[in-house]
Amino acid sequence: MQYAVAFALLCALTFIAPCAPAAAQQVSPAAEADAYGALYDTIAGDPGDVGAQSAAAVTARMIVRSDDTVATLAGLEPRLEQALGQAMLPTFIAHMGRLRDLYRPRYIALFAAELSTKRAGEIVAILSTPEGQRIIRGARTNIMEGVSADRLMADRPLTVDETDAIMAAQQRSVVAQTDRADLLAFQRMAAANPAVFADFDRFRDVMIPLRTEMDNEPLAAEHEAQLAAAIEKVFATLFE
């Protein structure tokens, strides 16, 4: 179904559709930046830090479950996992915000290469509907879906194939958790806007390398130090 393909691309922080060349009317650089910037902000934004909260909570759970000693400590102190997630959250918010700012120009350039400003506005309108916003929120909630503990702890870059598999897992989770009424509403939007939805799948492969590069971006030195200090403080506080 077309909406399922759209979910996969939402999880990739990309929402591309083919379009005819822009009309002959002149569009100022500022107007272009506004149109493509609005599209990026709609897709990549994280209102309420839902994505950061999910990432911090899942990372805390993986830390607890991936080490026998930490798992034993968690058995002695049930608050450990939640405390780790809460302690890491500010750093996740800062890191994800940094990534959004860092990759914003590259995503906007990609949008500009594939979309007219009119089409960018049409996509923003679809995603700004209540159904679109709930689906985007679902993608943020499932941002860590498909990322195993081994993958999270591995000291090597994420591969394009792994990104592809993670995106597929995110898609399945979002579809499974989205209310049926929203799924049907989104499907009707796809049917009513075939030019916007038709070639999402074709662009998916184009998006994967940039998504992979973004996910492989290391923590800034200051964020790495903050994360280590936050984790150390949790253990010191709970097990002093």
Results as ranks from 00 to 15, higher is better:
220 A>D: 11
67 D>G: 04
230 A>S: 13
35 A>F: 14
42 T>I: 06
26 Q>K: 09
57 A>S: 14
135 I>W: 07
28 S>P: 02
84 L>Q: 00
192 A>G: 08
230 A>F: 12
180 R>P: 02
83 A>L: 04
118 K>A: 15
108 I>H: 00
40 Y>M: 02
200 F>G: 05
224 E>L: 09
65 R>D: 08
16 I>H: 06
151 R>I: 13
211 R>F: 14
233 K>F: 03
49 D>C: 11
183 L>R: 08
157 P>I: 01
12 A>L: 15
180 R>A: 11
216 N>R: 13
205 D>F: 04
225 A>P: 04
115 L>M: 12
33 A>H: 13
13 L>T: 08
22 A>G: 13
37 G>T: 09
192 A>N: 14
141 T>R: 14
236 A>N: 07
22 A>L: 07
98 R>V: 07
235 F>D: 06
65 R>P: 01
146 G>P: 11
231 I>F: 02
151 R>H: 12
77 E>P: 00
160 V>T: 09
140 R>I: 03
14 T>I: 01
181 A>H: 03
84 L>R: 03
186 F>Y: 11
67 D>K: 06
20 A>G: 11
145 E>P: 05
59 T>L: 07
218 P>D: 00
96 M>D: 08
164 D>G: 06
175 V>L: 15
141 T>M: 14
132 G>M: 08
116 S>I: 01
186 F>G: 01
13 L>V: 07
85 G>W: 06
131 E>M: 06
93 I>D: 04
112 A>V: 00
138 G>L: 08
122 E>Y: 10
232 E>F: 00
78 P>H: 01
34 D>H: 08
22 A>Y: 07
92 F>R: 09
52 A>W: 05
206 V>D: 00
236 A>R: 12
167 M>I: 14
230 A>L: 10
154 A>E: 05
203 F>W: 14
235 F>R: 10
184 L>W: 00
187 Q>D: 12
143 I>D: 02
181 A>D: 00
203 F>I: 01
16 I>R: 12
76 L>I: 08
88 M>G: 08
35 A>S: 15
212 T>Q: 10
153 M>A: 12
72 T>M: 05
155 D>M: 10
87 A>I: 04
77 E>D: 04
175 V>D: 10
143 I>K: 06
199 D>C: 06
20 A>P: 07
220 A>C: 05
77 E>N: 08
197 F>G: 04
150 D>Y: 09
106 R>E: 04
48 G>F: 03
186 F>R: 02
172 R>S: 13
198 A>R: 15
63 I>Q: 05
210 L>T: 01
130 P>V: 08
43 I>A: 02
110 L>T: 08
107 Y>Q: 02
199 D>Q: 13
4 A>G: 00
41 D>H: 04
6 A>P: 05
149 A>T: 07
152 L>W: 10
48 G>S: 01
21 P>R: 11
214 M>T: 03
89 L>A: 00
161 D>E: 15
147 V>C: 07
29 P>C: 07
172 R>K: 15
230 A>T: 12
173 S>E: 12
206 V>F: 00
10 L>A: 09
236 A>Q: 06
112 A>T: 09
234 V>S: 02
